[in-house]
């Protein structure tokens, strides 16, 4: 009889195609679906990690971006002031 550990190991040793074939033929697909979900999650994590490493590889660019851009600060404050002081639009007189 297969133990749960040896069954897990057997599942993990399957290629993606074999796993999908088993999934299509199985009467009780729960364990196989869990394995699919685990693989998808692991690949999503790996994908994110790859993106993070790629982002870090742009360190020089990020170091330049980490300086205070006083022009951007002034522009931000100006826009905020304009938004704050802007009057709500007059209702359209002709509509009434």
């Amino acid at each position: 009889m297969e133990t749960p550990d040896s069954f897990d190991a057997a599942l993990q040793s399957l290629t993606d195609e074999q796993l999908l074939d088993h999934l299509a033929e199985s009467d009780q697909p729960e364990l196989l679906q869990a394995e699919v979900r685990r693989r998808l999650q692991r690949r999503a994590d790996d994908e994110l990690r790859a993106q993070q490493h790629a982002e870090i590889s742009r360190m020089v660019e990020h170091l330049e971006q980490s300086r205070v851009d006083w022009q951007a600060v002034r522009e931000f404050l100006r826009e905020t002031f304009l938004e704050f002081t802007a009057r709500p639009e007059e209702p359209d007189q002709d509509a009434h």
């Binding site: 993606d16 796993l19 999908l20 690949r43 790996d46 994908e47 990690r49 790859a50 490493h53 020089v60």
Partner: peptide
Amino acid sequence: MSLDNSTERKIYSASTNGAPLPEEQD
């Protein structure tokens, strides 16, 4: 549904399988 994915090849291995880190930044 397909699980084919080449993501793992893109992973820098500093925290995974021990392959060298990217070259030092210029």
